[in-house]
Design a protein around this nucleic acid. Structure first.
Lengths: 146, 146
DNA sequence: GCTTGACCTCAAGCTACCTTGAGGTTGCAC
DNA sequence: GTGCAACCTCAAGGTAGCTTGAGGTCAAGC
């Protein structure tokens, strides 16, 4: 909690590769909660670098910011997260990756079958099963392998 | 090319599970090009069902509509695509799936290493390498495992 | 011939995820 | 104590991928 350990937003941006505006946006969404100087400037913990890195990884895996917030909410508010705090989250991530790989493998297998049998009737082959999505509704961008 | 083989948009919507508005949107984006009746109504080929199914699958794999259009542009304009036309595209898709699985496996391996070695310094461990994305720029929603 | 449902166009709206711009303040260095 | 980069807020804009709404036409049955 040494004052020298607190980073201004620009520094955090440099370290993570994120845009300053993006970090502010994440704060707005509740993903990160910096301290403020008396002059109202944001000051971040070193551990917030990891927090942001985590956000980036999770995004690559297809999680939305809301889901990411849920994961991050498992971390202790107030104190710097310990190794074991992060481990829990990492393991949960591993599960998500496993599922995603399984789904991709399945898709690949079905695609192979379609090529193999020569019918190539994607709908009949269940590669894309229309009932899977009938009524999924919702709006906004579609994400991968939901 | 029998007239009875031409489907109105609602029928296509029912068959694919897509919304009518979505199909019209895809036409706008050049992903599909129906005929018109003299009364200006859209009439689709049966093979357009497959075309739309393909769009849905490709989206699940994380392709944007622009990329999907590129794939589809390999199909013959004018005549109904043959089996071998579709096979080419399917194979290209298979490649994409393979790459995606490889990337996920890599991510998983790195995550394991991080948990294993106990450092959990995501940035240092290269799980998320900031140089990878510095200057990737661009706006809009981020997609998975680019 | 008239009703009804499926179709048409065009513009605006919505979600997710940010960036850009205007207009103003802080804080460190000289 | 002053200059200037880095910070602040708030509103509006942009991309991707659609949906919704207003206002109107087409086609098949009764």
């Amino acid at each position: 909690m040494d004052k020298n350990d607190l980073l201004p937003i620009g520094e955090l941006a440099r370290r993570t590769g994120l845009a300053v505006s993006a970090i502010r946006f994440y704060e707005d969404k509740g993903l990160i909660a910096p301290y403020r100087t008396m002059g109202n400037q944001r000051r971040f913990l070193r551990s917030d670098i990891r927090r942001l890195s985590f956000i980036l990884i999770a995004q690559k895996l297809g999680l939305g910011l809301t889901e990411i917030e849920e994961e991050l909410s498992k971390l202790p508010r107030g104190r710097t997260p310990t190794q074991s705090d992060w481990q829990k989250i990492s393991r949960s991530m591993r599960g998500q990756i496993d599922k995603k790989i399984a789904l991709l493998s399945l898709t690949r297998r079905k695609l192979d079958e379609c090529i193999g049998c020569g019918c190539l009737s994607l709908t009949r082959c269940q590669l894309y099963n229309r009932d899977d999505r009938a009524g999924t509704g919702g709006t906004g961008p579609r994400f991968v392998l939901d």
